[in-house]
């Protein structure tokens, strides 16, 4: 079966600095896939290259059978993908409702119904739709950002560290929402630093080291993997998963 997203040997970086080196991953429909790895491994850069926020220098990005590598972020939205950046992911001077309307800018009909449907999942947001987004807490902003990205009913949602800097309670709520999003039929590809909680809800996971593929396993297998545990789940302090080939470690 053809995967929903098939990333084949993608390389990307910023200017002359290459951070991701020939990475291949795939995401099936209705699946949560998490990418973990040390700081500077190129996780967020990979996500941005997949979505078109930066242009890949090599490789192919196949979304629903179509090569979308090099398309702009704007075109990726049209192709059926949504993206939630780690920071600055809401329009601060717009209200909650206006933020959601902007997520549906390309949608002609059913906007209000879709807004109501999404707000139903987040009572905190639904209670004050006319509050400006700049006044929301970090967790509420993240929830709003995910709702915004879901307004056009994408088949694939890319999340860049959705629980970064959130309280444990808020993290739990966001992860529960990610599961709900998957259950509603949307595939999720996320980069996450809170590796244990992310892998607990993931169907599969990838480890990226030095901008290269280091490991691919199911979420459960990764949680049971002593090497992953040692490196990313805080069980032991030292050790390393080696990448297939040496590569420059990026800073972003």
């Amino acid at each position: 079966m053809t995967p929903l997203l098939d990333v084949q040997g993608v390389s990307a970086g910023y200017g002359d600095v290459r951070i991701v080196h020939g990475v291949s991953i795939h995401v099936e429909a209705r699946e949560i896939v998490t990418i973990i790895g040390p700081n500077g491994a190129g996780k967020s850069t990979l996500l941005k290259a997949v979505f078109g926020a930066i242009r890949p220098t090599e490789g192919r990005v196949i979304l629903e059978g179509r090569d979308v590598a090099g398309l702009s972020a704007f075109q990726m939205v049209q192709a059926g993908a949504g993206f939630v950046p780690q920071t600055e992911n809401v329009f601060p001077s717009l209200t909650i409702r206006e933020n959601l309307e902007m997520g549906a800018y390309r949608r002609q009909q059913g906007v209000n119904e879709r807004i109501d449907e999404l707000l139903d999942r987040f009572p905190e947001l639904a209670r004050r739709p006319n509050e400006t987004a700049g006044r929301l807490s970090g967790g509420q902003r993240q929830a709003l950002a995910m709702c915004r990205a879901l307004m056009l009913e994408p088949r694939l949602l890319l999340l860049d560290e959705p629980t970064a800097a959130l309280s444990p309670i808020m993290r739990e709520e966001i992860f529960a929402q990610i599961v709900a999003i998957r259950d509603s039929g949307v595939a999720v590809l996320m980069v996450e630093q809170n590796a244990r909680e992310a892998l607990e809800i993931s169907d599969r996971g990838y480890v990226l080291v030095n901008g290269q593929n280091a490991l691919e396993q199911s979420g459960a297998e990764m949680l049971a993997n002593p090497e992953v545990g040692r490196l990313f789940l805080g069980r032991v302090e030292s050790g390393a998963i080696e990448a297939d080939a040496p590569g420059a470690e990026g800073s972003r």
Binding site: F51, A53, A73, F74, V77, P85, F91, M102, G103, R106
Partner: peptide, 9 residues
């Protein structure tokens, strides 16, 4: 940048 990735031209 966020406007772009929200699908706004």
């Amino acid at each position: 940048a966020l406007a772009d990735i929200s699908g706004i031209d």
